[in-house]
Nucleic acid binder design. Sequence first.
DNA 1: TTCAGAACGGAATGCTTCGTTCCGTTTGAC
DNA 2: GTCAAACGGAACGAAGCATTCCGTTCTGAA
Lengths: 214, 214
Amino acid sequence: MPNPTDNPPLAGRRAQAARNDATILAAARAVFLDDPKAPIAAVAERAGVGISALYRRYAGKEDLLRTLCHDGLLRFVAAAEEAAAEPDDWAAFAGFLERVVDADVHSLTVHLAGTFTPTEEMGRAAVRANELVDGLVGRARRSGRLRPDAVTQDVGLLLEGCAAIRVPDPDRTRELRRRHLAVLLAGLAAGGPALPGPPPAAGELDWRWRATGK
Amino acid sequence: MPNPTDNPPLAGRRAQAARNDATILAAARAVFLDDPKAPIAAVAERAGVGISALYRRYAGKEDLLRTLCHDGLLRFVAAAEEAAAEPDDWAAFAGFLERVVDADVHSLTVHLAGTFTPTEEMGRAAVRANELVDGLVGRARRSGRLRPDAVTQDVGLLLEGCAAIRVPDPDRTRELRRRHLAVLLAGLAAGGPALPGPPPAAGELDWRWRATGK
DNA sequence: TTCAGAACGGAATGCTTCGTTCCGTTTGAC
DNA sequence: GTCAAACGGAACGAAGCATTCCGTTCTGAA
């Protein structure tokens, strides 16, 4: 799994193949982001390659989806780590959400859940992701900027809500999600009335990952 | 399209058939709410009837979906009208959102869009629905409780976001959506920082209704 | 009591969609 | 010049699903 930022100046079949690795994964991301039930042929077409180029790299559709999702999980973790470097507690929290929403990482992982059996490595990445979010929420809450009754799992609700917003134009989609996120951040700021109902519990939003069934 | 609240004390085949009308529509609502691409057989099974009982009432799948969606639109309008009767401007606005979220009306209409060609009557209902929402938003804004930069179309974003939240248990889903809605309402209250980006324009969220293709 | 047919259950049908495989071709590498 | 990695894309076979068809049940009126 080569680094997408590699830019090998090599020519020839080998280099072409290496570049295709990234091209195919990018195409798969775009296609399945648009329609989680898209056929594999759509990915090949989008990447501008034949179907066999896909099957040379992945054992089957499930394998491709798993790889794609794993990749998304790593991006999620990276976003959280980057955001955590921000000194201001609230800016770190808000910046994290903006990164994840912009990168559209959440919709990928959520909509693909259940279409493959996850690996243990993915499980570890998920745990790490959760720890990072927990840290960001904790910092924001301790700073007094985040309302005290907001919990880590509220972030999941929030991301799911933002991911649901979509219009045909991707750029406009990002703008609208940003706007929606701004409303949510305003609502998460300390000072509002108490939130109703029992807060989402740990693992309550993981149900998509538990079974392989539809 | 019989009123679901009818309770004919009649027995016999005729009465059974009349009751089935409502049973089937309710089953269809539950099934397609759970999975918008569910097969028609799932509806029949859920309703506890045979497939032919369905085809006796509807010309085909598209006809059933259209009827179901039309029904949802009417429920949406009814919710808006009920909420508008509330004298307090903010309570009317918030109450409307709670009704729609609780009844899960929005997800039905949104996820089914594009699977059938709408009737003119549905178009009229949609216009009426929009006018009602516009009125509620206007009242809330004039009362000073709603932030001035929120527009009618933000309600669409908000409802879409809430509809995206779901867990296996329907009751818990409602609770979580209510919680999410509370955050959003807190964020919509006047006093926050300005919302970014151009606000959603009229018709910008109607794209699902314009084409029949996927 | 009889019987025409409304209402129904569910198997059978035919079509579409898709994942996967297979085979002939191209093109660097040595 | 030869070999095989990489490919393109047609072909295959399975699965899912909308719709139709037919035999059965039971009501309601004569």
